[in-house]
Design a protein around this nucleic acid. Structure first.
Lengths: 209, 209
DNA sequence: AGGCTAGTGACAGCCACTGACAATTGACAA
DNA sequence: TTGTCAATTGTCAGTGGCTGTCACTAGCCT
């Protein structure tokens, strides 16, 4: 079972994380200081940095970590006979269908979505988000390459395909976060629509839809 | 003509920029302090921040700005009858062919390439680079949409196509910056090869090639 | 020549982050 | 229980990026 010490640690971390996200999403990321977060939880500043060695940034992406791991797991769970792009497509849609399972245990889904929007609208956070996305893309490229029996360093196709897929997701994120409907369902629908359009978008001529 | 004041300003800025890039590329980005840069040029720290309000970051990307503007200009110069993706492809290859013209007036091309590598290998800089890339992609999407007579907010295809194109460039940058040949020619060749492969990469099955 | 103003330096201060050391508190065995 | 050990936390001091303020100097313009 869980020892008292571990329980306390977990609570402190959760309290810090929740306070951080709440402050970020209400007052803005850069405008909230670490001191404000620790005052809200009544711990020392030093303690915050011990839980989040990456500083405010790590706190800001803690829940994203869960959601993205959820998505990668969905990719891994796809049957091996599916074509790579098809597996990615189904996994990402599945991920949005079941986003609650991945996130709700730590923070309300609504807070996660608010934080997602904040990341998209805060340049410093968006930059980090994009870097993290490329790290995930590298992971997926290796995954798919292994699945198809390819050497990811000899054959660029897995990385290229995943990068193109990632590009579609970025366009989707951006449109979703600036649009009027912040529900997971809206995100899911937009993702599906965009994935359907990427083929036509690349085939040269747009005038003759 | 150019007044004495303006000449002095220009020189100070150039000196700061060159000192910054030189220090970044030799000692590393984060390990270089602003004080070190200003001591090398013999100005106060405050002066550095007056020229580079964005701090070290702005200095790190000053030359990238030139190169990227060079590329966008090449896209604009493409004949309107070319298909969008074809215009992007030719413009980016052209950009690497004539990179000297865009950069050499301010810093040696070799220093620019070293800085490029450093950006790719420094997480904090890579993140910013990726965000800047999406800004450029937005610019290109609007450009191409206008060219084709489309409304970029109503039709997602321009953004999707440009995002996929950008994804290919990112894969290329990454491979180039970790490879053995840092010449513009190598970058050009890699870019062309990857652009040729993105089509096949997206067509479902990789095993039977 | 002399007033105007842009550019600069010096200084003070905020915030993110880190290292070192001391104090506290849970864990566990005698 | 109680004493010991180890994990957790707080305090303090310091570095570096960055900003506001103010006074001063040097180029500009009439």
């Amino acid at each position: 079972m869980e020892t008292l010490r571990e329980r306390k640690k977990r609570r402190t971390r959760d309290a810090l994380l929740r306070a951080a996200l709440e402050l970020f999403t209400t007052h803005g990321y850069e405008r909230t200081t670490v001191d404000e977060i620790t005052e809200a939880v009544e711990v020392s500043q030093r303690t915050f940095f011990r839980y989040f060695a990456g500083g405010k940034e790590e706190a800001a992406f803690a829940v994203q970590d869960l959601a993205e791991a959820h998505f990668v797991a969905a990719v891994r769970a796809r049957p091996p006979h599916e074509a790579p792009m098809e597996a990615l497509r189904r996994a990402v849609l599945e991920g949005w269908d079941t986003i609650n399972e991945a996130v709700a245990a730590v923070v309300p889904v609504e807070l996660y979505l608010r934080m997602y929007r904040l990341i998209e609208s805060t340049p410093a956070l968006l930059a980090v988000h994009l870097r993290r996305s490329t790290e995930r893309e590298e992971e997926l490229a290796r995954l798919l390459a292994a699945r198809e029996g390819l050497d990811v360093d000899a054959d660029p196709r897995p990385r290229l395909a995943v990068a193109a897929f990632g590009g579609v997701l970025r366009v989707t994120e951006r449109q979703w976060s600036t649009g009027p409907d912040f529900s997971p369902e809206a995100m899911r629908a937009l993702t599906a629509a965009h994935l359907d359009l990427v083929g036509p978008a690349l085939t040269g001529h747009w005038r003759s839809t």
